[in-house]
Design a protein around this nucleic acid. Sequence first.
DNA 1: TGTACATCAGTGAACGCGCGTTCACTGATGTAC
DNA 2: TGTACATCAGTGAACGCGCGTTCACTGATGTAC
Lengths: 250, 250
Amino acid sequence: MSASRTARDRVRAELTREIKEAARSRLADDGAAGLSLRAVARDLGMASSALYRYFPSRDDLLTALIVDAYAALGSTAEAANDACAREDLRGRWFSTCRALRLWALAHPHEYALVYGTPVPGYRAPRDTVEPAGRAMRVLTGILADAWAAGRLGPGVAGPPIPDPVRADAARVGEALMPGVPEDAVMRGVVALTQLFGAISLELFGQLEGAVDARDAFFDHNTALMADFVGLAATSTLDRHGQRGARARSA
Amino acid sequence: MSASRTARDRVRAELTREIKEAARSRLADDGAAGLSLRAVARDLGMASSALYRYFPSRDDLLTALIVDAYAALGSTAEAANDACAREDLRGRWFSTCRALRLWALAHPHEYALVYGTPVPGYRAPRDTVEPAGRAMRVLTGILADAWAAGRLGPGVAGPPIPDPVRADAARVGEALMPGVPEDAVMRGVVALTQLFGAISLELFGQLEGAVDARDAFFDHNTALMADFVGLAATSTLDRHGQRGARARSA
DNA sequence: TGTACATCAGTGAACGCGCGTTCACTGATGTAC
DNA sequence: TGTACATCAGTGAACGCGCGTTCACTGATGTAC
């Protein structure tokens, strides 16, 4: 049974993949709000009604694309992180930030799908919640490792944290970087916010005419925020993206 | 001539305003990509063809909305900045950041129009470039004032700035905060990026389930970034949004 | 292995809908003398 | 102030289009005996 099931089912899985692939291409022209089943079917040379054998509605296709985008973003981050020596904390941070930006630049419409303007009328179902956190979790994991290794410096101190914010930071910390004190958690969240702000502004065209050396600019940006969170400067990776460049001292 | 011209022209200006107003409301339901002249006309109780007396095409209406959004964001920032004593630099920074966030929360769809995912197929014309910078210029102006007054601390140092980035920072600094050295310009840009990242993440729903005390969270966020850029902590406004709270020492 | 039946994939026509834009028109408002 | 004319605002019908989704159908693939 399972062997024969896979015969037909492999074709099914393959076509499901192709439909999503075609839909991703369409995204570039029409955006998420304008994603059209008929256009996708046309690109694949099949009847639009055939798509209903694979996705019960347009929104379900959109959901699949969103889940895929989160997953791709997540595994990109994980791969970048894993490519570094575990104890090279600043290197892992840099590598992951860079990988996220490069993925976003290579897949701008999929990035926009998850971190851009929400699609009007579309409500993300539950399936979407879990994969959403994967990329984030890589970055917070680095901070947690740094803290555990006693290698998370004081960073920018800032004013004392008001109680309600402390509660939020405690909850976020519990979920993403257990053991890390609230003020370091806050700095981490601020750094993540900055990271996604930097990627979004570049991707959505707000740097146009203002910043030319985009790669180097992003790297310097990342370096400043690494200092901000207190990630010790032990990496060989934070200048110009050249592995093996001389380590710098903060 | 000019008196009689204004008779008819005042009605025209009024209706132009009403059309844009109705279009703004529509934005909430359908998003920018789905903005429909027919829907706007329906809401106003007029024939859809009548709108062509006011806007030559759908894209021109969209352009008008974008220009308006930038202008509203700009004057919101300016008003918040002007409401503070000129020498209260950190207060001005806080006041402006807060005002921008509150405007965005009050007008999420207009914010998305300018800082969210670009509308597919829409190319912003020239009219859009100048007003885009207004809100930014308020914030950079504060940093420039702080520098001129010798009140811009060292902030986070970061690594030495590579030459291409230095060139970008010099150009941006020239345009937005003349006289401020490149490293401070870079920190300013990073802070602006963080600000828009924070507003966008909150607005686009990424904080859902993670952060509850949104106002206080944003304020603390802002305080950390104010320290990051080196804005001296002399304000009475950076705790809990209460004017007259005790000044704190960094 | 062979046959009878059930399941599934894909088709093409049809549904009802909303869209941007054009056009010839009517009536009101403004202008020139 | 009054009249003749030009300009403008708004109408409603029409154009051609694309959309999501349903449905009865055909033929191929899988299942059970």
